[in-house]
Design a protein around this nucleic acid. Structure first.
Lengths: 108, 108
DNA sequence: CAGCATCCAAATCGATACTG
DNA sequence: CAGTATCGATTTGGATGCTG
């Protein structure tokens, strides 16, 4: 049972919550629209691990807001580090990947 | 095509190579023994992305060594950051998880 | 709006057996 | 020793349709 940070959506959700609370549907827009099931799974796992909170407002229509906990905020720094790494080294990595591919398709 | 760092084995392999070159079979021991297929897949993906090098020595018996590239080394720092986060916050996370579970099995 | 249920596709991980 | 090939279990992500 891993800590859902390396999966496809968790990091993006946490990043989306960086600037404050967001509603369920607000999270679906910027995230290349995961299906409600997948988003719910991600949200639940994050909530379970104490990284986000889920607040239900008894309004009509229904409103639910997700927000980072203190623990979730600490994770933000780690994700930022990952993004900095990608920004800095992704070109090198992509170049290496490209070179590796061409030695299979170009010369072979 | 993600950058194989968040998967189950890549980070561990990179970590295993921190102190220098390692052979194929040397990597299988400390890593809870992934099957050769899985280890090969991981190694190939890492090599493709320019994170490790693969060197074949024409000896008997066969010897192949894997070693981190400069790019791979930069990733080491990122992984270390992740480990530090885990060391520091894992207890909190586990406690939250525990609390979440008990509110399902204990009171529900 | 927020979320669940069901069925389905894709990626990963894994066990077993075999080759240079 | 260092892989490859095949089959299968598990996990994750996704499409569609329905409910409070």
């Amino acid at each position: 049972m891993p800590i859902r940070v390396g999966d496809k959506w968790s990091a993006m959700v946490i990043l989306c919550l960086e600037q404050g609370p967001r509603r369920f549907s607000e999270l679906r827009i910027p995230l290349r629209a995961p299906t409600p099931k997948v988003l719910t799974q991600t949200l639940r796992a994050l909530e379970r691990d104490g990284l986000i909170t889920r607040t239900v407002y008894a309004e009509v229509p229904a409103r639910v807001e997700y927000e980072l906990t203190a623990l979730g905020h600490t994770l933000l720094e780690l994700i930022a580090a990952g993004r900095r790494w990608a920004e800095e080294h992704m070109p090198t990595l992509l170049a290496a990947r490209d070179a590796y591919e061409s030695h299979n398709t170009g010369t072979g």
